[in-house]
Design a protein around this nucleic acid. Structure first.
Lengths: 335, 335
DNA sequence: CTGTTAGCGCTTTCAC
DNA sequence: GTGAAAGCGCTAACAG
């Protein structure tokens, strides 16, 4: 337990001022007019005594915790660590703590964590939510708790209770499908998990095909993971002949699918090309290395945390914004 | 920020008792003797009013933060997310927060975070440290801040300021090398990064070889990552003919090394067998899937967090323990 | 068995 | 410009 810590009182005694003055000097608040000489002296003493504000006293007084919640489905899903790191990077620079909370993608847990935030346990939250709509964030907005959602499409124009950073999944899948078309593929199937990002990703795929007058074929499977990729490809092949290219809804599915292809003795990309989405670390480790799309999660998440802190400091004000984030196709050897 | 929250005072008023009684009823402390009927009534009211203790007030008063620090090199290193999840799992069950801090493996940052903990910002810490020795934890021990280090070997018998959960790296590498020997390999090289776990892992490899009367050959490279694995194998091949098997110091190095082997047109495991260590998620995704060793990070880390909380609750007392953790060889197709 | 009281370290009126 | 004083919600003596 933290003993031994210098308090404002100690600084005040040594600097020959009152404790309140120390507080004011150290927190250059609004209207106060403390001569800069005094401020300097107090700061010097604070430094000498290695004064560190007690964040719990501060939190109790101000209802500000200096802690942000980073709510994600699962830290062991390889897409998320980079995202978490982005949040941590910003937080550390601003002397905030970041707490990571795993929802497992379940609605109950998503709501549970929202509840914790409402109780004032965190000053703001950056999150990826699969099951919540705008209304779930209304109370947070009323309590002036800023929220940034990381999403896969632009929000409707309705008044927003939160900021939204999104990568345009539909456009990304249109682009990567177009890449295959440009390479001469005329028989391109897609595999995807169900729910969440399925709709937009499939839609992007279909749009590109429609433009090129190619008939789509989509095989869905329950989960967006490696096993889902395996199962989807097996089902697909039981229904129709092998396509020349497969667009997978994410890297994990692409990798699962690649394993089936290789087990069948077919070569990638010559006989079947495969593309992914997310650019997880494993994407460049598999053979052949996976052509995929990077979403720059770390940078986006760092930006999200900055937005939160900006709102907490009143540097950002007004209604929730919807901000587009970049993506980039990473060409490797699988397509 | 958290308004609207019921306090003990509110509960007290509604239950017709004093605020202090509410506190006592809700925290079944030592010697107090409150009739269970009263306790039940207070709990009922607390529930009705949805009372949630204010953790900052509590922290200020008790110097207990209900927050644990989980200090690791880098959350984007695929070995660590599972570890973090183990800590989070235990913490959530005990209503603790877990804050993850990345040291990048640098001594400065390791010491910096220790400093934060000393300031009372966290009640305890679970950590992986590359550059700190026992003495760095002495002050924490004096402040009664429990520490669990996750390590790669048993500690000496000297008085410990912390608990230590270790996987026996040396024994693990002896075992996996033995696996190769049992398969008939007689020319087995090892590649490793420098520092940290290098010594023990190489030593285990050498012990197995010595028992079988095989001459060791170790190629070191700076980093324990994919690139390190590539470079190490290239250097090795520039010095001597290709071995029939390679023991890599971890999965990332094994995967880098596999890429070079495949680029040379050699087959794995027929011409060169490869083994890794860590069982990171990518290990089963590469081709061929990597034979490696699982360290059960999630479970060990969960156990570490339980130990910390046990010490905080005085359920665990006494000098720091050194506790061996299991590992298991995962046989896949690379060896 | 329960209530009164003090005070953790801090921010914030409000006087001087 | 600076300080005194109140109080955030809680725990822990202590008194009754």
């Amino acid at each position: 337990m933290g003993f031994n810590n210098t308090t404002q009182k100690d600084v005040a005694t040594k600097a020959g001022v009152s404790q309140a003055t120390v507080s004011n000097a150290l927190n250059p608040s609004s209207e106060l007019n403390i001569p800069s000489r005094t401020i300097e002296r107090i700061k010097k003493v604070a430094n000498e005594l290695n004064y560190k504000p007690n964040r719990f006293a501060k939190a109790l007084r101000t209802n500000r915790t200096q802690t942000l919640a980073c709510i994600i489905p699962d830290i062991t899903n390889p897409f998320y660590p980079a995202l978490v790191k982005g949040v941590q990077r910003t937080c550390e620079a601003a002397d905030y703590d970041a707490v990571t909370l795993n929802t497992d993608g379940s609605k109950d847990r998503e709501m549970h964590y929202i509840e914790l935030v409402k109780q004032g346990r965190y000053d703001g939250l950056i999150g990826v939510f699969f099951n919540l709509d705008s209304s779930h964030f209304e109370e947070l907005a009323e309590q002036n708790i800023p929220v940034v959602r990381l999403e896969s499409n632009a929000r409707a124009q309705a008044p927003q209770f939160f900021d939204s950073l999104y990568v345009d999944d539909e456009s990304a899948f249109k682009d990567i499908t177009q890449l295959l078309i440009d390479k001469g593929h005329t028989d391109i199937c897609m595999i995807s998990g169900k729910g969440g990002p399925q709709h937009l990703r499939v839609s992007g795929y279909k749009k590109a095909l429609a433009d090129a007058d190619i008939k789509p074929f989509v095989q869905l499977e329950e989960e967006f993971n490696e096993n889902g990729g395996k199962m989807a490809l097996q089902k697909l092949l039981s229904k129709r002949h092998a396509p020349s290219a497969i667009v997978a809804a994410n890297d994990l599915m692409a990798i699962g699918c690649m394993r089936v292809i290789k087990k069948l003795g077919l070569s990638i990309p010559d006989q079947i090309a495969v593309t992914g989405f997310d650019n997880i670390p494993a994407a460049e480790l598999v053979t052949p290395a996976l052509t995929t799309i990077d979403r720059f999660q770390e940078d986006s998440a760092a930006k999200a945390a900055k937005l939160i802190i900006g709102r907490l400091n009143k540097q950002v004000i007004g209604q929730g914004q919807t901000i587009k984030q970049p993506y980039r196709i990473i060409r490797r050897n699988s397509a």
